[in-house]
Write a protein that binds this DNA or RNA. Structure first.
Lengths: 205, 205
DNA sequence: CGAGAAATCTTTACACTGTCAAGTTAAATC
DNA sequence: GATTTAACTTGACAGTGTAAAGATTTCTCG
């Protein structure tokens, strides 16, 4: 009875339907004009139907941010997994790939990405959000550790390495997402520049 | 008649008064709960009074973002000017100081900083915003150029240098501002880490 | 100087928002 | 199968942004 689509009084799986509707609403309207009533209308339910599942609009957007965090981590992981060639710089190539996956996700799903880091419409005290956020960071930190291990170095002796990579990647991603929204250039040479910068940063840790 | 405070029908300098009220509103309510009617109430005028000066709420927030961009650039510039010691790494020290000024502004005025980079409530097509944004970038680029000049290198032969610094700095600033809002740690050791990361990045250009 | 024009500001109105409270209907439980 | 519980609808309310029309002041120019 989880996947039924009959128009009974009880929806059956309204929670998932609302999350999907919310994503469409977010993409079409943007974070700012996002409307809870609009989501309910898309899902074909009354404007107060979301309340039992998500409480208020912050609850719904926090849940949606959690969906995005999962996809975000998956995108980084699979971007790393795609590096299969076995050359001496494989560890660094994976680290760079993670950064490029980060940037790609931010630019292709800029609304969802914004939601992840938008503290206003999302509840930062929600434990699952912090957990998912640190999961994403963990993936990057693991790869930094692998790079450090090439020179027999350890994370604890190089506490700045992972934050530096994270900051540079996040900076590139958010500035690029912003530029893209504002109609700025976004050609391949920009992607190449990002990759060069990530390589240089990876070499600097 | 620009500074009169009489309670005549015409305010005299309502535009500036609204900007000041808007800043207070932004700080107290946040970007999300920012209300145009709230601003008007703070300024002691009717809720439709802002319209002749700013149009809609986006116009007011864009103007406020422009104020913030100016202060932002000033903060970076004076942070650089504060480096007066004449040692061999002065150019790099100035570059790092700019980054620290960037981070300091973002953390001390996180709402105004958010506004600068919030594309939703601000109109990105406003020319003055792009101009002010590139002015801030210009300050950093000039300092990168000075650092490159130490080794007789030029900006055009090192097109990634300035973007790399910008991205790392912006990433540190926005992640730190976010952490601060969410009640995370913000001690001096964190500032020290930022400075080390900026030094390392400056050395990598 | 003074009348018409233009700008500023207020008032009123409207559609829209999020959320609460009270009903209605279906499912779950015992 | 009755009752409790959850899901959902309906109705209401305060608050929002903005458009239109009216009131008041300043500006412009003859």
């Amino acid at each position: 009875m989880n996947t039924k689509t009959s128009k009974s009084y009880h929806h059956g799986n309204l929670r998932e339907a609302l999350l999907e509707a919310a994503e469409v609403e977010l993409i079409e309207k943007g974070v700012e004009k996002f409307s809870l009533r609009g989501v309910a209308k898309r899902a074909g339910v009354s404007h107060a139907a979301p309340a039992p599942h998500f409480g208020d609009v912050t609850g719904l957007l926090s849940a949606l941010a959690s969906v995005s965090f999962k996809r975000f981590a998956d995108a980084m992981q699979s971007s790393s997994d795609a590096v299969t060639e076995d050359h001496p710089d494989k560890a660094k190539a994976k680290l760079v790939a993670i950064g490029m996956g980060y940037i790609k996700y931010a630019s292709e799903h800029s609304d969802m990405f914004d939601l992840q880091f938008s503290s206003e419409r999302t509840d930062p005290s929600k434990a699952f959000l912090n957990k998912l956020s640190s999961n994403s960071y963990q993936i990057l930190e693991d790869h930094v550790q692998a790079v450090l291990a090439l020179d027999n170095r350890a994370l604890k002796d190089n506490p700045d390495a992972a934050p530096m990579l994270w900051a540079t990647t996040h900076g590139l991603a958010s500035l690029f997402a912003r530029r893209k929204r504002n109609g700025g250039p976004q050609g391949q040479e920009l992607q190449d520049a990002f990759e060069r910068i990530l390589w240089r940063t990876a070499n600097a840790i």
